[in-house]
Amino acid sequence: MRGVLLAACLTLAVTHASAAPPARVVSVGGAVTEMVYALGAGTALVGADSTSIHPSEAGRLPRVGYMRQLSAEGVLSLKPALVLATAEAGPPAVLEQIRGAGVRLERLHVRHSPEAVRENIRTIADALGRGTAGDALLQRFDADWRATRTRIAGLPTRPRVLFVMAHGGAPMVGGRDTAADAMLELAGAANAASGITGYKPLTAEAALAAAPDVILVTDQALEAGGIDALLQRPGLALTPAGRAKRVATMDAVLLLGFGPRLPQAVDELATKVRAW
């Protein structure tokens, strides 16, 4: 295993000798990991956090735990030359210890906008010494984003959508200042829960008052119960969306990740919430 990894690193080092990319990289944050792979530098990864589940290769990397609860020694034991971490990563004292042990640490934005995604791609490409791959990825991203925006601008309807996050336990709805809210805005839909801020527990009356045309959930949440179980919740069943069984589902990482696939994600969301 280590031999294979070493060989892979060596190949990488040879093919990009001029840029001298860091041979061992730990990535913290699902979108960050996705960008590393999109830049073709996946072989340099020696560890990732538990939110890095896309692409599937990322799932086979050693896990350094949840991004907000990193262990300094755990990360250092992977002997990284570079740690790429989202701004959400922590605790701060642990990041300070990692930097104190002589490891380069790059922090990325978590703002929910295409501009932030572009900046992150740039930062990661530069940190990995892959400027050319970064330019190419950005060009592709810009072209895709222009196409998506043009298409959405031409859509006639603006459906009211309620994002329900139900990963076991009480379901929560996504209000303002959430990734879900930003995605709905980008997809030309109205957030039915714009009266609240953050993720809040779903109450029957608030759901009724929000009167969503469409309920949006993640694929992962549906695996836990199915559309029927979701619609049996008091409140949801009586909304316009519930009565007509209009439930849209999307992969959680694609929907909320704000990674390099943002244009595709917005495009898919815009289509799915208008499927009726």
């Binding site: 609860q69 959400e88 605790p91 642990v94 300070e96 953050g198 993720y199």
Partner: peptide
């Protein structure tokens, strides 16, 4: 009132750790 992130921080704080200490 807490955001999702603050909630996670709060729940980890209540489990205790010696690793956060500078």
């Amino acid at each position: 009132i807490a955001s999702d992130e603050q909630l996670r921080n709060l729940s980890f704080w209540s489990l205790g750790s010696l690793g956060q200490a500078s």
